[in-house]
């Protein structure tokens, strides 16, 4: 079996060996549910779709995913087990992939456990299930992008709290990069091309159309590119910092 898959299995199991998994899943489900019904006005809208549910995902991920990703490498570096792992016959890329995929699969499990939402909307009306499936896919992809950012930042430090805060800040920047809050920082001095590029980096804009069930190849490519880039950075950071 491939070394990345062996590490993947170990990592995924370790989530369930500690309270991390249960706390994460319970909080995620509670928040996702209450946002949908109370803030999203699920009933009041009178429409059989899940857009009130999906529209809160970016904000949920903003705080929950960094809590998941902060330990990925920071904990290994703190406990010294990174020295054990990196002297086993596994490449840096395999190690990065194994850990990332396990965390991603775990968020996938948490996301899948929101299925009562899907059951409710099907019980209450006649929603477009294709659109819902697309939105789930988009949400999972976006979670992957958050995780890839978090994994890379986790490799830069031995301190999980630092990793958490930095990840929230960077993810917040990515979420809002299409909005004045971020763009104003650049507009005065950066060339227009750069400002446009930054504004096109927004998670929210890319997720918006997916959450409505519109799958645009560009949005899928965007999230895949973000994941790839941050994982590549993770490999580099790990190589430089693992022994510190």
């Amino acid at each position: 079996m491939n070394a990345a898959m062996i590490l993947f299995r170990r990592e995924l199991r370790s989530y369930f060996a500690t309270p991390v998994a249960y706390v994460f899943i319970v909080i995620f489900l509670l928040l996702a549910g209450s946002f949908t019904f109370f803030l999203g006005g699920f009933y009041e809208r009178g429409q059989a779709d899940l857009s009130p549910f999906f529209s809160f995902h970016p904000w949920l991920y903003l705080f929950l995913v960094p809590a998941l990703s902060m330990r990925l490498w920071a904990e290994e570096r703190k406990s010294g087990s990174v020295e054990l792992l990196m002297t086993l016959p596994i490449t840096l890329l395999q190690a990065v992939m194994g850990k990332f995929l396990a965390a991603w699969a775990f968020t996938g499990i948490a996301l899948a456990l929101t299925f009562p939402m899907w059951l409710s909307v099907n019980y209450l009306g006649d929603p477009d299930n294709g659109a819902i499936l697309a939105a789930y896919l988009g949400s999972l992809l976006m979670a992957g992008a958050f995780l890839a950012i978090g994994a890379c930042i986790s490799a830069t430090t031995r301190n999980q709290v630092v990793a958490f805060i930095l990840t929230v800040v960077v993810c917040f920047g990515f979420l809002l990069s299409g909005f004045p809050l971020v763009l104003e920082l650049f507009r005065d001095w950066a060339p227009q091309l750069l400002v446009d590029t930054i504004s096109s980096f927004s998670f929210l804009t890319h997720f918006n159309s997916i959450s409505k069930g519109v799958i645009d190849l560009r949005d899928l490519l965007y999230f895949s590119a973000v994941i790839t880039a941050w994982l590549a950075a993770n490999v580099v950071v790990l190589d430089l910092k693992k022994a510190e």
Partner: peptide, 30 residues
């Protein structure tokens, strides 16, 4: 790395695992 067995300083391992699961994990990676 395949030829080497290494005990790092302080014998780090994965605390949330039990020794059997840990050794099985190492055996798989090896």
């Amino acid at each position: 790395k395949q030829q080497i067995g290494y005990l790092p300083e302080g014998a780090p391992s994965y605390g949330e695992m039990n020794p059997l699961a840990f050794l099985e994990f190492i055996a798989d990676l090896r």
